[in-house]
Structure formats: C-alpha cells, structure tokens
Design a protein around this nucleic acid. Sequence first.
DNA 1: TCAGGACTCATACTAAAGTACCAAAATGCG
DNA 2: CGCATTTTGGTACTTTAGTATGAGTCCTGA
Lengths: 157, 157
Amino acid sequence: MSFFKDLFLKTRHFALYGFLMAILVFTLKWLQWKFLIMDNSIDIYVGLIAVFFLLLGVWVAKQLIKPSVETVVIEKEVVVASQSAINENELQKLNLSTREYEVLQLLTQGYSNAEIAERLFLSLSTIKTHVSNLFVKMDVKSRTQAIEKAKRLNIIA
Amino acid sequence: MSFFKDLFLKTRHFALYGFLMAILVFTLKWLQWKFLIMDNSIDIYVGLIAVFFLLLGVWVAKQLIKPSVETVVIEKEVVVASQSAINENELQKLNLSTREYEVLQLLTQGYSNAEIAERLFLSLSTIKTHVSNLFVKMDVKSRTQAIEKAKRLNIIA
DNA sequence: TCAGGACTCATACTAAAGTACCAAAATGCG
DNA sequence: CGCATTTTGGTACTTTAGTATGAGTCCTGA
C-alpha cells in the first residue's frame, strides 16, 4: 500500500499527525470512560467507534491522496513572419546562377529590365538574356509568373 | 461534505456498496461475539475496531474520491501566417472599383491581360483600360510594380 | 590545355504591355 | 427621371517584354 509510504514521506506534516494521534487516543479513552460509566449497549459504542474512524479514515485519505496531474496543452498563436527564412531547398532545385538570382531579386521588386540594367551596370541586352534564361529555368513564360512563383516558393528575400 | 454527495451520485455502484455494508455488519457482529466470548481487554477490541475502520475509511475514500485535477498549462507556439487577413484599410484608400479589384487579383497571380480577359469574359481592350486605371489609382507604372505594391500593402488574398 | 559553364553584349524580330482618347451601355442614387 | 460612376469596348500608337541567334571573354576543373 503506497498510502503509508506517502504518509511517511510527508515529514513536514509530522507535527500535525502527532497532534491528530493524541486526539485519537483521547477520544478513545473518553469513549471507553463513558462506556464504563453508562454501561449502555455495546452495539451503540462499537457503532460510534466504527463510524467515527471510518469518517476519520476518509478525511485522512482526502488529505493525503496526491492530486493527479492533468497536463493540458494550449496552443498559443504566435504571429511570426513566416517568410523570414528563404526556402534554400527550392532555390537549389532551380539551379540559378549568381547573376540570374540577382536579376530575379530585382525583378520581383517590380523593376523593369532597363532599371535592372542600370542598377547592375549592365546593358539591356544582358538583362534580357538573363531574364530569358530565368524563365526557362523557372518554367514560366512571363516576369509576372516568375514573380508569383518566386514569392510562392519563398525563394526571395 | 461533498464526499457523500459523490457516494450517492454513483448509483451504478450501489450493488457494490450494499455488499460492502453487509460485510461491515457481519464483521461488527463477529468482533462483538468474539468480545463476549473472550471477554478480553476492551482496549484491544476498541483498538482493532478503530484501526480496521480507519483503514476501511481510507480505502473507501481512495475508491470514491475524485482525484483533484491539477491543470498544467503548457503554451505551445504555433506559427501563423501573418498575412492571413488582408489590409482593408489600405485597400479602401486606393478606392478601387469592383472590376478593378478583380483584375488586380488576377494580375497579381501572374496572368497576362489576354488571360484575364478570357477568365472574366471581357475583351482585351477592357482589361487594358482597367489595368491602366489601376496603375493611376495605385500610383505605379507597370504591372510588376502593381504586384509588388499589392503584396507589400497586403491587399490581396 | 581545353571543354564547358557563366557572363557579357549585340541585332533583329515578335508579342505583349501600356498610353491616349473616345464613346456607348449599364448601374445606382437622390 | 436625371446625373455620376462604373463598365465595357474600340482604334491608334509607343514602349517594354520576350525570343532567337550569334559571339567574345573569363574562369574552373578534368
């Protein structure tokens, strides 16, 4: 019976149990004295003893039984910028060169070919070449589709 | 004492408790008979009664008492896409008409003017008109800029 | 060293996007 | 109804995007 084990483990409550024991002994003696004086029915006396200690046992058990721990997992929604990290996996699949990726980044920011050429100090022809190669590698047919796919695959910063 | 309330509520266990009660009465009578025959010390008899019913009370309590539940809340972070809801505020500022907004939605999905016309059962001319008006209202100069701005302001689903 | 990939640039062309201007039909509201 | 707005569509034009092809340079790994 692990109950008595628990009882002895609760050393911090020894004082309480000692006091309780004293009350028990006193009650027992008082009941016995009353029995000797009154000499009434033994049934009533024993019944009182039984009921009293039954209730006492219940009370003691209630005090000692460990509450069972129920773990409740509550999902808390936390808003996180889901596109904080780019999808390196999808990016590698496309096998883009350094320049092509640079062009793609500017392209997705809404820049025209002429603007991209200006920012990268390249000719418009070069940008057109890169963009065309990009479309082949990304399997799209226009810059708007490229933007949509890039944002959907989360491969741009 | 809510314990007795629980006892009576457990109607399905009435048979068990009846049987238990019978055992109790029988035990009481047996102890009483033994006392009358042996006429030994009243202390031992009462002590046995007390210990027996104390333990019985503990056992009964353990069987009946509902374990008090200690709830442990564990917060679990769940990543939620931050752009779940569109920015109604920014959308209203643009003052787009119903058709213009429809066109914008398809535009941001990478569709060409011809494809948009096909899906909305309109002519290419109409789409061009809507797109041009869109650019004026959105203060952009190309569809790529419109896409970038729409996604940045979070005004598309 | 040399083959291949990446990067650059050019020309010529087609397709699509975008602008400007106009106008008719539909819609919604006081 | 009358008026403003939206929606639709057209023509004509310019600009940009996109394709095809070729070619020179640079760098790296076999």
